[in-house]
Design a protein around this nucleic acid. Sequence first.
DNA 1: ACCTAATGTTGCC
DNA 2: TGGCAACCCTTAGG
Length: 561
Amino acid sequence: MAPQTRKTSFPKIVIERETESEQSSSEEEEEDEELDEEEDDGVFTRNATEEEEEEEEEAAAAKSVSNSKKMKEKAPITISLKKVCKVCKRSGHQAGFQGATYIDCPMKPCFLCKMPGHTTMNCPHRVATEYGVIPAPQRSTRSSVDYVFGRQQMTRIPKIKPSFVIPDLVSCAVIRYHSRRVTCLEFHPTNNNILLSGDKKGQLGVWDYVKVHEKTVYGNVHSCILNNLRFSPTNDGTVYAASSDGTISCTDLETGLSQQLMDLNPNGWQGPSSWRMLYGMDVNMEKNLVLIADNFGFLYLVDIRTKNTGEGILIHKKGSKVVGLHCNPVHPELLLSCGNDHFARIWDIRQLEAGSSLHDLVHRRVVNSAYFSPRSGTKILTTSQDNRLRVWDSIFGNLDSPSREIVHSHDFNRHLTPFRAEWDPKDPFESLVVIGRYISENYNGIALHPIDFIDVSSGQLVAEVMDPNIVTISPVNKFHPRDDVLASGSSRSLFIWKPKVKEHQQEKTNFIFCGAAGKKGKRKSGEDSDDDDDESFASKGKKSNTKKPTRTRHYNLKVGS
DNA sequence: ACCTAATGTTGCC
DNA sequence: TGGCAACCCTTAGG
């Protein structure tokens, strides 16, 4: 497949000048600059040093100011855009896609590991996610039961790979009923085929992904972004949702009837400095509490039965957003919080007050999520905007520094829901984690953003899931609590990935994926034309059967190659 | 195939 | 603390 450049030509542009306008927009200024440069375009063949180029640009910019005054009355003009790197705005190189391969700007630090001196193209962390990671010692913090279980498994399988982690075939169901990007996902605690989803608009989706067309969207629960979903520990027919509208809702999944458990903005909009938004949320079954945190650094404990809300407790930097809360699954008194003050913190909820955290886990950037491990509750996994996953192997051990840091591409982007690495609750070793990948990979000529399965005890990329039809980034992912199923939220769509029944044994080094999950065809513009947007499991996908033969692609695992 | 709107948050000064 | 610029791999729709 011949590589193609996205921009094949740099067009001549005609600018109609506003004769009266005093102000010059930034675009115009840039164009002025380009205009000046055009003059020496023909002789711009020497190898200018960096500084020379900078001087030249400054001079051009200075000239452009006077020119824009002089030429205010002139109209229209024709200019040509010279090839300039869109990242650093310098000439001589270009960043961007060439075909399905993204070329980094060489003037910037590596987009993956953030270190200077190389680009993602030759970043060692891109070659192998385990680069620089010292694997956990085998003794680790496993209980004796897990150890025995592990030994049994070890005789058969050399590595920690639950059966579906490297599926021979994966089928996918896709649905799109959200009108804005998906922000959170939650599997039903008892009903195996129900997936809940929240979106940026505040809508709550309920989807039975086996009966693909059974779906409901509750649009009147919240008025803006739904940040977290959690089932009631006592009634699995009701779900709590935390929203940036400042309320916690308690919704009956059957009826869609919703009650308010809390409202932090009872007096309505009084300006942005007082409007409170709710982010991190978790439920503590033992104490019958909903724990909720806001965008000013405060935590609230809400009694589920009495709806009694205590005083807010400052648990993160004043005025900072607390994006994640997690109650320890084994030790009910332990709470983990994280926020955009670059900290994750461990608390004892019996003695909560500002500054009384048991431990502060420092990060270099915002912490998108922090979770205790799902079975033993002794490990901690965090996702930080510095493109690193961090693992602490034991909350009872030394917490001064993480046990491992795994470089992984999950940058912040204003258009994307922040990435959160999620544990596999079924993994007895508590080492399998799923997280979507930001940077793309060229898969047979298509730029795709896979969903990564990472063994956090070694840092190894165990598997990557992608579909040639799904070209969007999948920042939201959740393992099913019991089944070999993964749910993903990608833009406004939801995906269910599950292994197909094996027809024949495949080679272990190949990850084979059966595509045809998404639709590439044109969609109707109406966002609510729902049934048309559904697609059943790939094996039933009509599109792929009628128009083209079912696409089956073989992808080599990108591990250690 | 190209263009553009929608969209906030982070980090730095 | 407030203000402000930057933000590189977005996505959908026209």
